[in-house]
């Protein structure tokens, strides 16, 4: 009875895995494989490869990521607050405003510090 309810999910998972694996396997098995030197070498506009393709990211991406994580997750508090706004009286309302004020100060700080400039 209960297992039956999960049957669609199992089918979906099986189909998903199948769709992912079958083309890969098919390509691996069916496609002709005749490697030569030109094919093996990495292509860079007709030149020899200058450096590895695994160059590290620019540090600025990390900086933006750090700032994003912080503000993104702090706003998660807004959802339960908004849903239960009718039940939590004015104290609940104003404590969220206080919290947002603190966030605003953090935002002002990073703005003035120049963390939001790309250059």
């Amino acid at each position: 009875m209960l297992l039956k309810e999960y049957l669609p999910i199992v089918v979906f998972i099986a189909l998903g895995i199948g769709f992912g694996l079958v083309p890969l396997l098919a390509g691996f098995l069916i496609a002709p494989s005749r490697p030569n030197k030109a094919k093996e070498s990495p292509y860079e506009c007709g030149f020899e490869a200058i450096e590895t393709g695994r160059a590290p990211f620019d540090l600025r991406f990390y900086l933006v990521a750090i700032l994003f994580i912080l503000f993104d997750l702090e706003t998660a508090f807004l959802f339960p607050w908004a849903v239960s706004l009718r039940k939590i009286s004015s104290l609940g309302f104003f404590s969220m405003l206080f919290f947002l004020g603190l966030l605003l100060i953090g935002f002002l700080y990073e703005w003035c510090k120049g963390a939001l400039e790309w250059e």
Partner: peptide, 24 residues
Amino acid sequence: VFLILAVAAAESAIGLAILVLWFR
């Protein structure tokens, strides 16, 4: 859990910041 998530974000931000210093 909400609090843990928020703190986890702050923690990873600090961790990444220290990491960037190390990488420099």
